[in-house]
């Protein structure tokens, strides 16, 4: 089953067709790579999928529901989560708080300021701690999130997505700018999420990394899908080599 479908999606900024009548779908419990040269429209595609941008034409379907007009928060509640190319943690909150606020059961209604929540809050913190352990930054739980290293913030962002109980993860360049050890941690984390039945759509420039985990690759160029196939097919597709991989290899 396809949990995510993009149909004939179009988005222009002034004269630039950032997304140019693009269509593809993502299968449930798959790891799908989304690649393309810089400026191909990958981040814009994520913004359209999670509702930060509205398309000029076309549709976005999540779990077979047409969510095209929906606000971002409603799409998130449907099980869609994402990380950002430029990290967006809540820097003045502690790392732990960053996770606690992401829980669906976070008792954040106004009236709940006046009911006793000690136990509930302790439970939430305990659960948040488990997520911090999963991504391996439990010892940083009580630091200001803004004081974590770049890599730790990336892990925190993924943990925060997990805490929302999402089953679809859009990861925007999870491997960019991280050292080999962390790269491996992130890889294991992605494989673990996949094992738990989650669906992942990953934008990434690190080809060995992506090719080693992805089941399917979607190549975008100039806002359009250029090729869709298995990692092997994509690596041997002459059009892709010309538009993207070929140039890279010559470097």
């Amino acid at each position: 089953m396809n949990v995510l479908q993009v149909q004939n999606l179009h988005k222009s900024f002034g004269g630039i067709h950032a997304i140019d009548h693009c269509s593809f779908s993502v299968e449930e419990n798959s790891i799908t790579g989304l690649i393309g040269p810089n400026g191909a429209g990958k981040t814009t595609m994520f913004d359209l999928i999670n509702g930060l941008l509205t398309p000029d034409e076309g549709h976005v379907l999540i779990k077979n529901q047409n969510v095209t007009g929906w606000p971002t928060y409603k799409r998130a509640r449907l099980g869609l989560s994402r990380t950002f190319q430029a990290i967006r943690v809540f820097p003045e909150l502690t790392a732990l708080e960053n996770i606690v606020v992401a829980f669906k059961g976070h008792p954040s209604k106004l009236y709940q300021a006046f009911v006793p929540l000690k136990k509930k809050n302790r439970d939430l913190e305990k659960r948040a701690m488990e997520y911090m352990e999963t991504v391996g930054i439990a010892d940083k739980a009580h630091l200001r999130a803004g004081d974590l290293s770049y890599g730790q913030q990336k892990l925190l962002e993924i943990a925060r997505c997990m805490a929302t109980d999402a089953d679809i993860f859009l990861l925007d360049e999870p491997a960019a700018g991280v050292n080999p050890t962390l790269l491996n941690t992130i890889k294991q984390l992605i494989l673990k999420l996949h094992q738990q039945g989650k669906t992942l759509l990953i934008v990434e420039h690190n080809m060995p990394f992506l090719m080693s985990i992805a089941h399917k690759i979607i190549v975008m160029n100039f806002g359009k899908e250029l090729a869709i196939g298995s990692p092997e097919e994509i690596q041997n597709n002459p059009r892709v080599l010309e538009a993207y991989l070929g140039k890279k290899r010559e470097e």
């Binding site: 989560s81 950002f84 967006r88």
Partner: peptide, 14 residues
């Protein structure tokens, strides 16, 4: 506070 810190991230968390 999450709205002050990063409203877009808060929306993306539902």
């Amino acid at each position: 506070e999450t709205i002050r810190e990063d409203e877009i991230a808060a929306k993306a968390l539902g």
